[in-house]
């Protein structure tokens, strides 16, 4: 409630048009169906059990209104929840609630989601990459390739990665190809499926 109002206030102040605020999944779905917003921001913990109701509501929205961008906020991060959401389609984000406080970054993330990106919280990617593995395939990667993989997993496009690393997009493409080959991850037709493939790889190794 407190957070929702703070968030709404932030969005209004950042030239977003907040068309509705809901306290439970039913209310949320009713609002979404009537207002057809561009973006829905959902807390994964909603009444009645405050476990995964938000995720379920997001899935319903995805099925009914696939064009609606969805940002799922969570108090903690789980790879299963991330992949479940990302598997439903593009224009998707899965972030820790904490990310709201970094206002600029947060608003930029919203923009990317609205433009179709699939975004995964860096903390989750960090956890996946940091996991100790027996015969770790990631050991074959160069430090640069690791950086690129991290950004891929977070849902950055090649352009985004190039921008982030101050390199050309061509360089990024080279790295990406090398990474996919080394890890034997199949090429994905779009960024959001690439995120899924990378997450699936990291989760299963």
């Amino acid at each position: 409630m407190l957070l929702r109002e703070g968030l709404a206030s932030l969005l209004i102040g950042s030239s977003f048009d907040v068309v509705g605020r809901a306290g439970d999944p039913e209310e949320l779905l009713a609002l979404v169906r009537s207002h057809r917003p561009d973006l829905v921001i959902v807390d994964i913990r909603m009444p009645p059990t405050r476990t995964t109701e938000g995720l379920e509501a997001a899935q319903v929205i995805r099925r009914e209104l696939p064009e609606t961008a969805i940002l799922l906020l969570s108090a903690h991060i789980e790879v299963e929840q991330a992949t479940e959401l990302l598997a439903s389609g593009r224009s998707t984000g899965y972030l820790l609630k904490d990310r709201i406080s970094d206002v600029e970054d947060f608003l930029a993330t919203l923009d990317r989601i609205l433009k179709g990106a699939a975004i995964v919280d860096p903390a989750l990617v960090q956890e996946l990459l940091a996991a100790r593995r027996v015969d770790d395939p990631l050991e074959d990667l160069s430090p640069r390739e690791r950086e690129v993989l991290t950004l891929m997993a977070e849902g950055r496009s090649n352009a985004g990665i190039a921008h982030q690393l101050w390199v050309t997009e061509g360089t990024v493409e080279k790295h990406v190809r090398s990474i996919l080959m080394k890890l034997r991850i199949p090429e994905a037709p779009d960024d959001h499926r690439r995120v899924l493939a990378v997450l699936a790889f990291l989760d299963s190794h």
Binding site: R45, A75, I100, S101, V103
Partner: peptide
């Protein structure tokens, strides 16, 4: 639950206010 739904929410709100 209290941590997630109480303290954490409040802290995120606080962080948001500080940030703004």
């Amino acid at each position: 639950r209290n941590v997630h739904d109480g303290a954490q929410q409040r802290l995120v709100s606080l962080a948001l206010r500080v940030s703004r």
